[in-house]
Write a protein that binds this DNA or RNA. Structure first.
Ligand SMILES: [Zn+2]
Ligand SMILES: [Zn+2]
Ligand SMILES: [Zn+2]
Ligand SMILES: [Zn+2]
Lengths: 145, 145
DNA sequence: CGGACGTGTGAGAATGGTTCTCATGACCAC
DNA sequence: GTGGTCATGAGAACCATTCTCACACGTCCG
């Protein structure tokens, strides 16, 4: 009800830089990594601002966020339609994938147990071919232990 | 190769208490919540020890861990066979569910993109019936805003 | 254009969950 | 029993994220 509540997002150098950087990267990156990359490239942006920009992008549905196993948040420019991810554990390379059956399954199993307001999260983790090859090499050289 | 590597888990009052508490609870609880519950009940255990005991249980496959949206880890006594979870957002009540099709789907989609060492995580979140009813009541009373 | 307003920025402090440190205590095989 | 480990716990350390607040700068009329 009442006003549509659009706080009017303002266009600044910092927000533009964050989104531009995300557009060039293909995988999930943490806020700290993005902050370091921006600094290297010269587009210096405060860390707190990186966090705020990412949060805004997530709210706008332009960016997906994923929690790593150690609890850090990682961000990626994603398409706005519902999808899931196939993520490389070591380099972050990501492929967007869809699985229509699981959507129906989630809704059905939730209904069967009387759960409402259903959401689901499905992610697949693995090692992409280049990273697997690199790891094999490492093992062949000195890393016996 | 070499020794089977079983560091010999020692049985102490603290670890017994943590596992016993988890056995009584039906949902995912954070380490801090478990620590508080143990203190109330009189089985006082240091917070660091709760974390260590939980980590050991996870390593042994007796407990599952889930990251909340705010990044906290939540633990639950679970069956040792592979399964997924239907979790109530507000009370933590949890149902273990299986979805054989998604297992095959994950393996296939990973193979198609050349990913190895595949793992997947699938969780469904919702509001269980009792919690939904409670929230409806709250809204009817003073919470107009 | 030219301010006025209100949002955005950033350095540093604060927060809070988790892990580490290390002196002390308690299992348990012998 | 005893000894050698491993476990415990209070507090410090860690570290990602958020908060604070003085200041800068888009945006919007006029
Ligand atoms: Zn995505
Ligand atoms: Zn889905
Ligand atoms: Zn489980
Ligand atoms: Zn599965």
């Amino acid at each position: 009800m009442s006003a549509p509540e659009v706080p009017a997002r303002r266009q600044t150098r910092q927000r533009t830089a964050v989104l531009a950087l995300l557009d060039e990267l293909d995988g999930f990156r943490t806020a700290q990594e993005l902050h370091a990359l921006l600094r290297e490239r010269g587009d210096a942006v405060g860390l707190a601002t990186v966090y705020r920009a990412l949060q805004a992008l997530v709210d706008d549905g332009l960016v997906d966020v994923l929690r790593s196993e150690v609890g850090e948040a990682a961000y990626r420019r994603c398409s706005p339609v519902h999808h899931h991810h196939l993520v490389c554990r070591s380099c972050g390379r990501t492929v967007e994938v869809a699985d229509p059956p699981v959507e129906r399954w989630a809704a059905r199993v939730a209904a069967e147990h009387g759960f409402a307001d259903v959401q689901h999260q499905l992610e697949v983790f693995g090692t992409c071919r280049p990273c697997a090859a690199a790891q094999r090499e490492d093992r062949l050289s000195g890393r016996g232990r």
